[in-house]
Design a protein around this nucleic acid. Structure first.
Lengths: 251, 251
DNA sequence: CGAAGGATTGACGCTTCTCAAATAGGGTGG
DNA sequence: CCACCCTATTTGAGAAGCGTCAATCCTTCG
């Protein structure tokens, strides 16, 4: 049971310290996120070298990993917790472009600057590498380059699905698509629970779905009154997944 | 003037034949799109090998390059014309997830199937390669892998900007952001013209911006009445770019 | 020239946004 | 442990904008 942390625990890591999480010796060998991350493509030597390339860092909720337009000094390999990826528009509106989960790789921009900001929804742990060192490390390793390509392709797929979502006009459809998408992403972490964690706030959901916080709240509550979901603290229980799918795709 | 085709000409290629565009011998040497495409990362030998890996194909308007969920047999390197990338939702709605321009690389999915459809807005020319052959070709060439990574990163950037656009609630803001984004993409092709081509239909614009065709039309016409743009056949002239920027970012 | 598809315009209803207020939850200090 | 504060969430009422439906006009192309 000690090796089998639930996905809820992994997503909701409780640590709030802010630097070098103690015993980092051979941390990769015990890393829960390894099989989901780019590290799965590494051989033993490469894994060892990468481990020495940078430390694992902890962030408390709301801590900023990096900000859009900052010089892209680091890349991050998220190992625990949930991060919020967002852009701020000149008018002050915030659009969340995605949520990062353990295994996700952040900051691998091609330009010299980050093109979005990232902060912690929950307490987070992430391996931090100097971007230049990392780029040198991977530049002649086709296996890692291909793995990174695979990750970018998945990101692109998620991004395009999000366009589908944002293009749908009804709030109900967007919420339904969001719940399905979130459930499916969590499914990669194993145990599917009847109640799934929803660590982000209403404001985050609204900014992700392109609606106001009031509409997000109203729509969720309406689904609850229709016995399709149950809203619990920091989570939601999908009572009737079929009904949600119907809403998501209905005309 | 023969080597200096205008971007309008390049975007609006008139050929409508459907296979092997004549003299393909050393076509890469004269390819207008080379410097913009992944091919710019190739050395002479690699370029020659890639040239022999597959032909350049022509497509007429509305021809389909590939469809979502089809087995991903080919990848394409667009050399002329404009392509429409889209997904169809179960309810029949079409969401355009992007427009491809010369130099863009299409179909490089990591899964076995395409995850969106592509068809021709204008007549198109594209180099077609067997996906498996192409993957074998690049698998041990870090220079190309890095170049492809660069392309994916740019795609991701565009996709996230599109999320910003789709998240903005006003139609005027979306249209303004679209016009700016389109202008900036065309700017890569050199000569910025006062009148920029807009080869896609209102329906395409609407499906790209997540609105109805009526709203797209009305909004564009309103901008015209406000002397901010002029609508011409298959194009638009930006009379007052500053005003468009204001609309795009205003609260 | 005529047909078919694209674009524009109008009228009206509905969903969502806006503004405002009440309620619930979480955290802190006494 | 409780009182209090601050933030998150929920709810309400009214207004504005967009979608829907329908008609007309314009383009394109055989």
């Amino acid at each position: 049971m000690q090796n089998e942390r639930s996905s809820r625990q992994r997503l909701m890591a409780q640590s709030t310290s802010s630097e070098s999480s103690g015993d980092s010796h051979r941390r990769c060998l015990h890393c829960q996120a390894r099989s989901l991350s780019i590290c799965a493509a590494l051989n033993a030597t490469e894994l060892h070298d990468l481990e020495n390339l940078g430390p694992e860092i902890s962030f408390a909720s709301k801590d900023i990993l990096f900000s859009e337009d900052d010089k892209a000094r680091n890349v991050f390999n998220l190992t625990q917790g949930v991060a919020r990826l967002y852009k701020i528009m000149p008018d002050g509106r915030r659009q969340i472009v995605g949520f990062a989960l353990p295994g996700d790789f952040l900051g691998a921009t091609h330009s010299e600057r980050y093109n979005f900001s990232a902060d912690a929804v929950t307490p987070i742990a992430a391996c931090r590498f100097s971007r230049s060192k990392f780029l040198r490390f991977v530049e002649d390793k086709p296996n890692i380059l291909r793995r990174m390509h695979e990750f970018e392709a998945r990101e692109l797929h998620l991004a395009r699905n999000q366009m589908l979502l944002l293009g749908s006009n009804s709030a109900e459809q967007r919420i339904a698509l969001f719940l399905i998408g979130w459930r499916d992403r969590l499914a990669r972490f194993g145990e599917v629970q009847e109640t799934m964690p929803l660590p982000m706030r209403r404001r985050d959901i609204a900014d992700f779905l392109g609606m106001t916080i009031e509409t997000a709240s109203r729509t969720l509550r309406r689904l609850e009154r229709q016995k399709i979901i149950v809203i619990v603290r920091r989570g939601v229980r999908l009572l009737n997944p079929a009904a949600i799918e119907d809403l998501a795709w209905a005309r």
